[in-house]
Design a protein around this nucleic acid. Structure first.
Lengths: 166, 166
DNA sequence: TCCATTCGTTGGTAGCTACCAATCGTTGGA
DNA sequence: TCCAACGATTGGTAGCTACCAACGAATGGA
């Protein structure tokens, strides 16, 4: 991954800067997960199971916004690694109930640790007050966005209509 | 794109929140660009040409961190749309010199406008002071990251070694 | 003049994300 | 008891990103 000297006109666009920052940091964290033998989906599934305890496979997919068909390989990975147990629900034999194993919980703890370390490196130039500000703004904007804050945009185009593509 | 109710354990990871925020905002902006008939690469190339004036095609690729082979289609799009002029460099007939047309500059202005509007929607819950704080922190962290702030991470793994995958 | 190098181009590969339709066993209500 | 609906699975599709090798035309230095 090359880090090019971006044009000033792009750096003026805060959304570009935000994207670039987030993508690079996420890529770095994903690399660290990979060194633990995990990918981002492993971490996300283990997070859901850690929070909710044993959960039906389909429900986990819904929680993560993942298509049921895409869950299959993800879960198989976790079962093969011994991080998640997959059992038929006795009450409804169509369903799989997923349960994190002790190793799975341990792995998720390691993942959290890597996230903290990576975040630490990112926030290094900030003092305690700066970090609090950053965290508060980040979660405020995330909440605003998740509540539909981007849905009320004016129609595209300005006073000047763009030419249709030839 | 479904917006699932993420697990608390994921929301505790600021890097996850940052990624989620940036990806969603970027997706929204990309949709707006699409309504103008542009994609993100169109905007990036036009930004580079707006800043630097006429530029050799290969140089633009280097500026954007894009492989020369991937530049071909991107430039052809822009030429077909009438936003960029592509001419052989008389001094070196291997080279193409790219120049933004007046329409190209106009389109880039419209793209900037959409970025401002989308940013406006995102920052709606902040007052002027909050926006200044956000912008300062964003650019500070971006600069820190681009200067290699994530390169000095401790080795992966903690006191407890993860089990190797079976 | 010869040859290594550069520029644009063609035509691939690989991984990831986000879908969709069809199938099979299972379930639960009419 | 029958059948519509559900959960997991298989096997696709499509787009996007980030590569890489090889080639022909053009260049410029030895």
């Amino acid at each position: 991954m090359v880090i090019p000297p971006f044009s000033q006109s792009l750096l003026d666009q805060d959304i570009f800067v935000l994207s670039n920052l987030a993508l690079t940091v996420r890529r770095r964290l994903t690399e660290r997960f990979a060194e633990l033998g995990m990918n981002r989906w492993d971490v996300a599934v283990l997070a859901a199971l850690t929070d909710n305890g044993p959960t039906v496979q389909r429900t986990v997919g819904t929680l993560l916004g993942v298509d049921p068909s895409d869950m299959v390989d993800m879960v198989e990975r976790l079962v093969d690694a011994g991080w998640v147990e997959r059992e038929r629900d006795p009450a409804d034999r169509r369903r799989y109930v997923l349960t994190p194993t002790p190793q799975g919980r341990r792995m998720f703890e390691l993942a959290r640790q890597e996230e903290r370390r990576t975040r630490e490196a990112l926030l290094a130039p900030l003092d305690e007050r700066g970090r609090e500000e950053w965290r508060a703004l980040l979660h405020l904007l995330h909440g605003h966005m998740r509540a539909g804050g981007l849905d009320a945009l004016p129609p595209v185009g300005g006073t000047a209509e763009p030419e249709p593509r030839p």
